[in-house]
Design a protein around this nucleic acid. Structure first.
Ligand SMILES: [Zn+2]
Ligand SMILES: [Zn+2]
Ligand SMILES: [Zn+2]
Ligand SMILES: [Zn+2]
Lengths: 134, 134
DNA sequence: TTAAAACTATATAGCCACTATAAGGTCAAT
DNA sequence: ATTGACCTTATAGTGGCTATATAGTTTTAA
């Protein structure tokens, strides 16, 4: 199959496929005489794997690491689970940070209503005050 | 004061200050004969404002917009509050997305322990299965 | 006094994971 | 013969910095 069909069947852009190839995540496929890339079912699976990892927001480096593990099936899988644990920890830390952020924003927003002049807007005041610093 | 002192007093890198100047967030300061930038207290305040906005993860475009509002103090502040409301909505949506992500990751992680061969690792299986797609 | 350290300047590239644009070659159908 | 859909490579842009290279200036210390 050609790149367009692969792209449609997995739901990514053709540019993204070429990008993954350049980044070493997708093996370079055979070429037709005219230079067109020709993909196999293996490529579909490989690309789908990448996409599922990306949905979980694993980085390309992490996906690369997982692919290396796939090539060594007789080693213990501790490293894979460690990778996942680290990623989960990072997602949790992002959530916590954003929750702190949300509180600060809501508190700032609550300091003003919509019926003031900008010159008297407490939101702008809040952003201009030293007290808001951290 | 020169750029280094401004940087230290607000807690940013000198490069960041020059970057903000290029982006139009910080007005170009006077220069000494040798070309060195000379800043005033106004610049300190302006940079501190930017930094406080950045702590709240407002984008440079949003900060630019707020600065424009500061120049028109006799207009109603509705636009400011709308900007903040939009930003809060976006932060909340990020939190929700990350919470969904966390659940998926934890569920995937729970499917395996550390004592398997990579060839039998359920985490890798999960990432390779079509069922995980969405 | 001079050499080193610390500061300043500009310009340019890199980060991440794409996305967009340009400029062109290939192929099937009309 | 031309349209249109597809393919190719190369290059630049996104955001908000951060790092590097190269060079000029000021301050400090031997
Ligand atoms: Zn990760
Ligand atoms: Zn207001
Ligand atoms: Zn925002
Ligand atoms: Zn496992």
């Amino acid at each position: 199959m050609r790149i367009g069909q692969l792209a449609r069947s997995v739901g990514v852009d053709t540019q993204t496929i070429r990008f993954y190839e350049r980044e070493g995540l997708l093996p370079p496929p055979e070429r037709q005489d005219n230079g067109y890339r020709i993909y196999t079912e293996r490529h579909v699976e490989r690309l789908a794997f990448i996409r599922r990892c990306r949905i979980l927001e694993l980085s390309l480096a992490e996906i690369h690491e997982l692919q290396r593990y796939q090539g060594a099936p007789h080693q213990p899988c501790r490293a894979i689970n460690t990778l996942l644990d680290d990623h989960i920890a990072q997602v949790r830390s992002q959530i916590t940070d954003l929750q702190v952020l949300e509180k600060q924003l809501v508190s700032l927003r609550a300091s003003c209503n919509d019926d003031r002049d900008i010159g008297a807007c407490r939101v702008l005041e809040g952003l201009s005050e030293e007290s808001m610093q951290q």
